[in-house]
Design a protein around this nucleic acid. Sequence first.
DNA 1: GCTACATTGTGCATGCGCGCGCAATCACAG
DNA 2: CTGTGATTGCGCGCGCATGCACAATGTAGC
Lengths: 211, 211
Amino acid sequence: MALEIPEVVIDRLPIYVRALTVLERQGRDVVNSQELGGKLGVTPAQIRKDLSYFGRFGKQGRGYNVKRLLEELHQILGITREWSMVLVGVGQLGRAILGYGGFAPQGFRIVGAFDVDSAAVGERVDGLEVKSIDVLPEEMRQLRAQLGIVAVPAASAQQVIDMLVESGVKAILNYAPIAAHVPPDVRIKDIDPVLALQSMTFYIKESGAAP
Amino acid sequence: MALEIPEVVIDRLPIYVRALTVLERQGRDVVNSQELGGKLGVTPAQIRKDLSYFGRFGKQGRGYNVKRLLEELHQILGITREWSMVLVGVGQLGRAILGYGGFAPQGFRIVGAFDVDSAAVGERVDGLEVKSIDVLPEEMRQLRAQLGIVAVPAASAQQVIDMLVESGVKAILNYAPIAAHVPPDVRIKDIDPVLALQSMTFYIKESGAAP
DNA sequence: GCTACATTGTGCATGCGCGCGCAATCACAG
DNA sequence: CTGTGATTGCGCGCGCATGCACAATGTAGC
Ligand SMILES: NC(=O)c1ccc[n+]([C@@H]2O[C@H](COP(=O)([O-])OP(=O)(O)OC[C@H]3O[C@@H](n4cnc5c(N)ncnc54)[C@H](O)[C@@H]3O)[C@@H](O)[C@H]2O)c1
Ligand SMILES: NC(=O)c1ccc[n+]([C@@H]2O[C@H](COP(=O)([O-])OP(=O)(O)OC[C@H]3O[C@@H](n4cnc5c(N)ncnc54)[C@H](O)[C@@H]3O)[C@@H](O)[C@H]2O)c1
């Protein structure tokens, strides 16, 4: 199979999905690569090249059928089905994640929440009962979640990630500020706002006006 | 000046900072590129090449002095000083951000919080009084914040970003799921967990066991 | 049905990031 | 002070992502 597809390409596809979803909701039928690129800050050639890895979805002289392209991208990314996720760490961030309404419409369902703190365990948060981290392995045998979200302090993160991997999770969204280690068959993506800020200050550090 | 430094390099420096900070706290004096690379999943050559853009910080036969290298990286990234940030959108996520203890130790201070909802305005959240979005422009004349955090719904995000730019903000951390437009002299980084999830499902979609 | 026009799909060249490999350099032991 | 061992700094080539340019192809108008 065509597994020579660059990872950068895969990372751009969800952005296309996001923009196309907006266009579909606006009732737009077709869109061309130039308009789409303008919205996203991507060159039209880039978009066409990216899509050409997977097939020929456009019509010359018109552009891309919004609905059709959206379906194709869903198929490619594997987001036609529903995905089950478990959350570990029901603290401040964990609660915001549980309450976030942005996952469900995209087919990502949180089916389990775990914490080590006995004060949190047993509590109901957004219709989900928080379970003890100790029962994660056995709970996972029923839940069969393929994705894990890690929102525990840095000190516990690697340990929690190991547990998730052991329980069969194949992809992890990690909010803890560590560089975690996972087996080659497990995907992991980190979200760290501090890293984002620290790389931006490099570019603006000369632009005056300290307080 | 040496402004030919690739952005990917700048994006890696904060990761080095994070790892070195841990080593320093552990009392380590020196570290070599191999050990550092092992921790971070980066090749030793990559690390040495990255650092060589900015100077010669290592000693042959020994490695890098942890404290010294950390200071150099702080200097390079512009994180020796304190940076002031304003937050717009004090909802679920905004409150988690305000309560997050990870910004202050790295020199990032939230000095203002704004919302449009009259129920939130006037409220004190983590020692900060939430102000109306209407007074953002005049408040900014006193606060002089260089960074902005956007945690409002997608529909309001571009408008809020325009206001921040107008008020002199030079870098924006955007949590809203949109591709925002900013002038060339303003940096912006997006944080979107859904995009991260959607790119990971591509790789694990065949690996069995649907619910 | 035919012509004019718009836009895709892609071969190809350019440029850039990555990592190899080695000489230069430093620490340390004897 | 000299030799040994280790690790950096960096020149260089390779590979890959990016974007140009054009032929292929479909649309719409007449
Ligand atoms: N709050 C934010 O906005 C924010 C933003 C980015 C990253 N983060 C990161 O997310 C993580 C959580 O942040 P937070 O603000 O929610 O902290 P928090 O202290 O409020 O929550 C952490 C939760 O994890 C639980 N926990 C600790 N060890 C555990 C273990 N071994 N197993 C299961 N649960 C465990 C704690 O009981 C607590 O409920 C931290 O690593 C933080 O750096 C937070
Ligand atoms: N909650 C999460 O974990 C999470 C994660 C990632 C991204 N996001 C994104 O972050 C944003 C906020 O999410 P949330 O869950 O906190 O939503 P929320 O509805 O709880 O909070 C949004 C807040 O923004 C305020 N607001 C709306 N328009 C405004 C305007 N023009 N000016 C100032 N304030 C305004 C609202 O009054 C509200 O308080 C959304 O774009 C969401 O997609 C949230």
